[in-house]
Design a protein around this nucleic acid. Sequence first.
DNA 1: ATCCTTTAATGAATCGTTTTACTATAATGA
DNA 2: TCATTATAGTAAAACGATTCATTAAAGGAT
Lengths: 335, 335
Amino acid sequence: MKRSPTIGDVAKLAGVSPTTVSFVLNDVGGSSVSARTRERVRRSVQDLGYRPNVAAKLLRASRSHTIGFVTDEIASTPFASGIIEGAQDVAWENGKILMIVNTGRNRKMEERAAEMMLERRVESIIYATMFHRAVEPPKGFREVPAILLDCYSEEGHWPSVVPDEVSGGRTATEALLVKGHERIGFINLPSGSPAAEGRLEGYAQALEARGLVFDASLVKCGDGRSSGGYSGALELMLAADPPTAIFCGNDPTAMGAYEALKELGFYIPQDVAVVGFDNQALIADQLRPPLSTVALPHYEMGRWAVNYLIKHAGAGETPPIRSTLDCVYVERESV
Amino acid sequence: MKRSPTIGDVAKLAGVSPTTVSFVLNDVGGSSVSARTRERVRRSVQDLGYRPNVAAKLLRASRSHTIGFVTDEIASTPFASGIIEGAQDVAWENGKILMIVNTGRNRKMEERAAEMMLERRVESIIYATMFHRAVEPPKGFREVPAILLDCYSEEGHWPSVVPDEVSGGRTATEALLVKGHERIGFINLPSGSPAAEGRLEGYAQALEARGLVFDASLVKCGDGRSSGGYSGALELMLAADPPTAIFCGNDPTAMGAYEALKELGFYIPQDVAVVGFDNQALIADQLRPPLSTVALPHYEMGRWAVNYLIKHAGAGETPPIRSTLDCVYVERESV
DNA sequence: ATCCTTTAATGAATCGTTTTACTATAATGA
DNA sequence: TCATTATAGTAAAACGATTCATTAAAGGAT
């Protein structure tokens, strides 16, 4: 466990003062370092394998260049990991680094995480959830610019970025409408979530825009799993006037619907078209035929959040905007 | 952007010296602080909302209590996120914090990540991959105790922790054997990966242990996707002497096999039993019937790695063990 | 009255940088 | 020749904590 070389060691080896080394390393001090010296310092840095001590820098400069990223379970479960990718990409592009902590929906853990981050003087904090939902961030978050990602607060005064569920529902429905379908079934998620309400709303809007009437018998309430999709599809197809297309509230639901349709002898997409939601590659890509679905803007939300913080945290003010990002339709072969 | 209170501010408010505040906060200095003073300091800390500056602490103490976690894509894709969870849990239990960076399989990024971590004086580094494979960690990693997680190096001298693919293959096969199956098909992953080789080896071992002969016609090479499972299962079931059970190299493969079996009119598990591998909840839970499968020890590997580092990094020596952790069988309804 | 010990507290050095203010030498212009 | 201005560099303070060495006061013991 030997001591890492310091700027003083470099200075000694190069035969100059620490000040000069600092000037060379940070390209400041104007023309006050000769080319020869500059070169000598560079070589010494190389030879010693010198690496600046971030703690010392931070202590002096009071800028940690670190953004805290607190998440319920994104980093530990399959679903929304694009969020982290997007956030990290923008952070790195701007010379910031992300400090990620997984709290597992545990309040105690959230508070500890906030505490830990503030001790490390993060410049701002992102609070991200795996599913679009309402949250109440821990108090520590007020002490620094913060933004909610894929969630929002009832209290209002937090900036947040969430998917536009309504436009998502509309997009999915329109993908079926443009193919000429006029009777479109919808197997929704269990009600009570922004996703369920929003997607239903979008579905209705799309129909209305085409001058079609909303038929409640075409809307089933699934459970967000394949079993709900299975029974929902059975009900729809065995009814008096079955639909020619089904919009499923998420991909597992579509997976169940596939099952039902096949058992009933319908071919996808010839007899019945299916569109899912969430674009979970594991399902959408592996189903036969591959499932057309709508992708949540996870990556984009991650980018947006960090961009927002970098832009506004510098300026000191963080206006409580509620930004919504569009979902995009991913065409495969089920429509 | 106001200055956070320092230990000096606390001291002033409490009418004592910074030294005394430090003693109170860290519970050192023996009996050298009276109860009354102690209380006064505590209150001042509260009132000011004082939070120690980690940078200053670190600078003085040269202990960052931080472990670097470099990963190809775990934090950004669905598959192996349990690794992060396990790692983070143990880290927190030991008062360490994890600094996670996603490199997206990009060499440049890996080097930058290593550099960044060393600048922050991480005490050790974990290099984790999403799939079990061979890697060559960037040079920076040599400067600090490190361990490879879910991967290994041909160079040998790195400690690593990986899943025991052979025992995994054996476990899956045995799950079928104990139910009385004697002709067991195997749709493997594309060859060339530790997973493919190991699981096949395990399959063969399990058969041999039962005194059954290895029949090459029962082994198909899939593509790790549902399409490979579909065609593999078709071939197996349409052959002269079809198996009564199929072991699939991963869950998407099993998904394809389900499809084929259903088309051929076989019921699962009555006519043909199926077991998968990877325990991808999204598939295994949503298939009908739910898929019995083998889970990779992601969470446990994460724990193991951090434990190893904490134990050995302190001692200075990091012996290059290659630890293998068992996969566990997850019973659902397809067997 | 002197010496020793205990209790309660503090001053100052230290960690590794950055930055401000300063100095010494050389070159330039009048 | 002298004043001025670049040029090339350095000394020292500051950032916020910890810790070693020291001190001041009070309470015995002799």
